[in-house]
């Protein structure tokens, strides 16, 4: 009942994708409504990261079936930059270093690209400096990182803060955070999680891809999905994550393969 009143942001239907002719996604179905936080868990190689990259439009993956709808747009028809401008944001598991390109300039150009789509005013260098100072507080990041090359020589934690900073600047409708917690110590994890919580609004949605319960102690999901073999096998409330922490993934995969045999 509640769902029909809130807005559907993302709808993934029977999504199949290959990389170098290897099937990685084998029929993913997922619906994400405004105001929701979803966690996707699963073993390494289950397809979690692939799903996030396919939604963002990484060119290495070939879509072999299914659809992805984002609000009223068919995402698969759009280039990665168009998806970003619509409000899809992917926080990278391993943020990429780009030598020679100033972080500040990069942040400004990307922020303005998104703002242009949103029909907001373009920020000039000075306005942007003020804007970015505000957002830096959310991730407690040292302004010195603005003057360096994008992610170059940043520690793992600094890279992740830079990702959340980008999320804060771009104000996405859908944020997909791919193992944002990996490689973070507990303090950094709290800072990042606090940033994510602060940025979550009733009009936006978040997908967390993670291996660990500890992130979900900081950010409470509405739904927890378990992926295996390129499919979502089970969906439940936040308690599922605790169960996984205790018992691992075997039991779910067991149930699912029994089901398939019975069919």
């Amino acid at each position: 009942m509640l769902k029909s009143e809130t807005k559907l942001i993302l709808e993934v239907c029977d999504l199949h994708a290959n990389v170098e002719d290897q099937p990685i996604l084998n029929g993913v179905n997922l619906q994400v409504y405004a105001g929701e936080i979803h966690a996707i868990m699963g073993r390494n190689g289950s397809g979690k990261s692939t799903l996030s990259k396919v939604i963002a439009g990484h060119p290495a993956y070939k879509i072999t079936g299914g659809t992805i709808k984002f609000e009223d747009n068919n995402l698969l028809d759009l280039d990665p930059e168009e998806r970003a401008r619509l409000g899809v944001f992917l926080g990278f598991q391993y943020p990429i270093e780009i030598p020679g390109v100033s972080n500040l300039e990069f942040l400004r150009v990307s922020t303005n690209a998104r703002r242009e789509y949103e029909k907001k005013e373009e920020l000039d260098t000075f306005e942007f400096e003020d804007f970015v100072q505000e957002k830096l507080k959310i991730v407690k990041m040292d302004p010195a990182f603005l003057n360096r090359s994008v992610n170059e020589g940043f520690s793992g934690g600094e890279k992740k803060r830079n990702e959340i900073l980008q999320m804060a600047l771009l104000e996405p409708k859908l944020a997909i955070l791919d193992e944002t917690d990996s490689g973070l110590d507990i303090d950094a994890l709290r800072v990042v999680a606090a940033g994510v919580n602060k940025l979550a609004t009733p009009n936006t949605a978040t997908i967390l891809i993670t291996h660990y319960q500890r992130l979900l102690n900081e950010i409470t999901p509405n739904y927890v999905h378990v992926m295996a073999n390129g499919k979502i096998l089970k969906t439940a409330g936040k308690e599922l994550a605790l169960q996984l922490e205790k018992s691992g993934y075997d039991w779910i995969e067991q149930i699912s393969s029994n089901k398939e045999e019975n069919q």
């Binding site: 963002a56 280039d79 992917l90 780009i98 020679g100 390109v101």
Partner: peptide
């Protein structure tokens, strides 16, 4: 390229920035 594109920067601008 994908990283820059996924932040809304178009392909050509991404190359020229780098």
């Amino acid at each position: 390229l994908f990283y820059l594109q996924s932040r809304g920067i178009n392909f050509e601008e991404a190359i020229s920035m780098m």
